[in-house]
Amino acid sequence: MEQPADRYSDLEKSDIFNNEFMVHIDALYNFAYKLTLNEDDAKDLLQDTCMKAFRFINSFEQGTNAKAWLFRILKNSFINEYRKKSKNPGMVDYQEVETYYNSDENEGQVQTTPDLRSETVKGMLGDEITNALNSLDVDFKTVIILCDLEGFKYDEMAKILDIPIGTVRSRLHRARNMLKLKLATYAASMGYK
């Protein structure tokens, strides 16, 4: 991240940090928790994000979209950590997963989804929905979190994730197909009707 020379006074930095950054702390913590699935890791990731946000505060333009800026920092911190862990053979390489789901032979996956009814989803417990979401590959889960839980628009998600808007759209479409498949499979296994 390029660091412009001191753009803000100490007072301005304090004002930005307290009034533009800290108001998003719950959303950041929830995002961190949903990525790490562990409260201690989420706390560490949150702290790391806040430290970096302050350190690079001169790169932030006051009055612009602080939430998206902070989510981008958090996502990058998580991905860097995740990539380290992905050297572990047990972890999945995200790019390979997306390439697989983007391939033509996997198009129309939604058509093979077992039947799933709205009433079934309405009757599911929070844990069941959460487990289905968590079972998605991390970047597919991320787009659903950013869009459905945090209400980011596609252009904001593109900036947070550092990908073109078209990729946001297609990734989200595939993520939703996969989530639907997970929910349907789970519902079938539990005998939901």
Partner: peptide, 15 residues
């Protein structure tokens, strides 16, 4: 319905 379920049924933590 899925959007609503994801939003309303997943855990929301407070710092």
């Amino acid at each position: 319905t899925i959007r609503k379920a994801v939003k309303s049924k997943t855990k929301n933590l407070e710092v």
